[in-house]
Design a protein around this nucleic acid. Structure first.
Lengths: 335, 335
DNA sequence: TTGAAAGCGCTAACAC
DNA sequence: GTGTTAGCGCTTTCAA
């Protein structure tokens, strides 16, 4: 019977074995000042030999500061995955550690955040939270909250986001430059940023004097929504020559839906996505899209979070500049 | 200055306010036996009013059992997301809580697991771990490990997995039944399960007396790998009439690559995927695929994990039965 | 530079 | 049903 898992090694064991006091051993393990090199060497050696692993819980229990930054994210959302990856990279700088809390079908942002509070996180980074501003503010009253990838005007909550309106404008302007005039937008349904991108689209169309041809089709986040939207677009009395999609995944659905009906992309219809997601350069046709620079976004969010945890800043908003990635799904307007 | 975040409310505060002892308050908060209904009501009311939140760390520090089950997963892997969702669902039964640890570019399974050990998890569920059996076994010596979605023969490690060989055989048999004989397999590169599916393909082909036409093309996990493989397949002297792909994402790439070259799916070439992923029914053509039943897989893994944590079982292996989902990407062989 | 003692917030063992 | 006592593994005064 493989019982008897290596019973726990504590700092007491290490100290005894290294014949020094527990506090001294503690100093060494924390790389704090106040121990001789000789002691340091000895303690470290013993710790290694015994397979000592500092107990995070006990440590944070004693030292009020937990060193934990909570992160909520949607498991099924590729863009969130990019940000999580970026946060891990940022966390490498040390001093603070990530605690993940997933938003899944059965668990919303509020419950996910609640878990993190019980973990005594010093600050929360919430990725694309679908939470009312009232609840968000209530949360922010308990712990510093940094909302990422969700345009938000909520006093007390930090925001790190892309300029959604500007991003869509980039797409529209790009298409207009290619000669397109009949450009429709497929939105993201109830997703964060969807209203902003929708509005940005309408503004950009107006700025180009194209208000009368502007049209928004309801969409969503997934490929299936794009396929559905394609059907709807194909049913229009007049087929547009270009489409801007809420995100890349749906853009992929759009392209596939159009191609299925024999409509060439970009020959007959151009499509521009949003996100510059992993698979976006490898579909039926490489996708022209808007890059959000998730790595930078994550880094800024992380810095904010630890800064707020240390009470170094007041909450504010940071808006990143979107970038157009021109690939194969957009081309000159037909005629 | 919005300083003064509601300073921490402890059990002592609750007890004082409810004029009872701390231990009694503790009993109430844990819903343990040994308190009168009247006390229960009073303490709960006070706790609610004060916004008391039990400190998980202190709790687990004191009670040796942490109630934590660690889960490692790849953030960028949609199939892992399904499993994580299933694990959260399983965890609803209570008693144990999930601690997530992501595997990202800069953090491998070993480091992810190491984090969980420091969290004092009682058992680990590792999703698709890409870890040598030696390291896995070393880990399993410290804590019960349940490997999910990775075929593995490693004493001391629990395994919950799909019958990969059987799954691919299902796909091959389905295609043969449709009249196909020239069937190629695009593998998953270095991904877990890739060797097993490759082998399953070869076996099934042999069982069908098709060994001489069997061919494996190198692939990977992403859509781009499928597109690349499509190019390779299109370059073959004789185009096969069917393809089995390591997963759905790559199958999508394959279909798109083929269609780009004017090859009809399933008219000219049939394609079968693996995973029954979210987007698989909404692509250019709805994908025929193999379902792994991630919900059940997750539930079994969870039960194993808490069972092992309580030392109720010895490690073992559970193999799930794959199921063929027939959709539009497979059809009768041409001729 | 080192060590002794106190205590973080909680639970568990025991007495009442 | 209730309170008292001890202590989880660690950090943190404080004194030596």
């Amino acid at each position: 019977m493989p019982r008897g898992r290596s019973t726990k090694v504590t700092l007491v064991d290490v100290a005894r074995e290294a014949s020094c006091s527990v506090s001294l051993a503690s100093i060494v393990m924390r790389d704090a000042a106040g121990a001789s090199d000789e002691t340091r060497r000895r303690v470290k050696a013993v710790a290694g030999r015994l397979g000592y692993r500092p107990d995070k819980q006990a440590r944070s229990l004693r030292s009020t500061r937990s060193g934990l930054i909570g992160v909520t994210f949607g498991v099924h959302q590729p863009f969130h995955a990019e940000l999580v990856e970026g946060l891990y990279a940022a966390a490498e700088t040390g001093g603070h550690e990530i605690v993940l809390s997933a938003v899944v079908g059965s668990i919303d942002d509020r419950r996910a955040a609640e878990t993190l509070l019980r973990d005594r996180c010093e600050a929360l980074v919430m990725i694309g939270p679908t939470l009312g501003t009232a609840r968000l503010r209530a949360l922010a009253a308990e712990v510093p909250v940094v909302a990422v990838a969700r345009p938000l005007s909520c006093p007390g909550v930090d925001v790190v986001r892309i300029d959604d309106r500007g991003g869509i404008a980039l797409a529209v302007d790009h298409l207009v430059e290619l000669g397109h005039r009949a450009i429709v937008h497929v939105d993201g349904g109830s997703a964060p940023s969807s209203p902003e991108r929708r509005a940005g689209y309408l503004e950009a169309m107006e700025a180009q004097g194209l208000s009368d041809t502007a049209l928004v089709i309801p969409g969503g986040l997934e490929q299936a929504h794009g396929v559905r939207a394609a059907t709807e677009i194909l049913g229009l009395t007049e087929l547009p020559t270009a489409i801007t999609a809420f995100n890349d995944r749906m853009a992929s659905g759009l392209i596939q839906g159009l191609r299925l009906a024999g409509v060439e992309v970009p020959g007959r219809v151009s499509v521009v996505g949003f996100d510059n997601a992993r698979d976006s350069d490898s579909g039926l046709v490489p996708l022209t899209t808007i890059d959000q620079n998730p790595a930078l976004m994550a880094r800024l969010a992380w810095e904010r979070a630890i800064g707020r945890a240390a009470d170094r800043y007041l909450p504010n908003e940071q808006v990143l500049v979107p970038r157009l990635i021109t690939r194969g799904s957009s081309g000159p307007a037909p005629h």
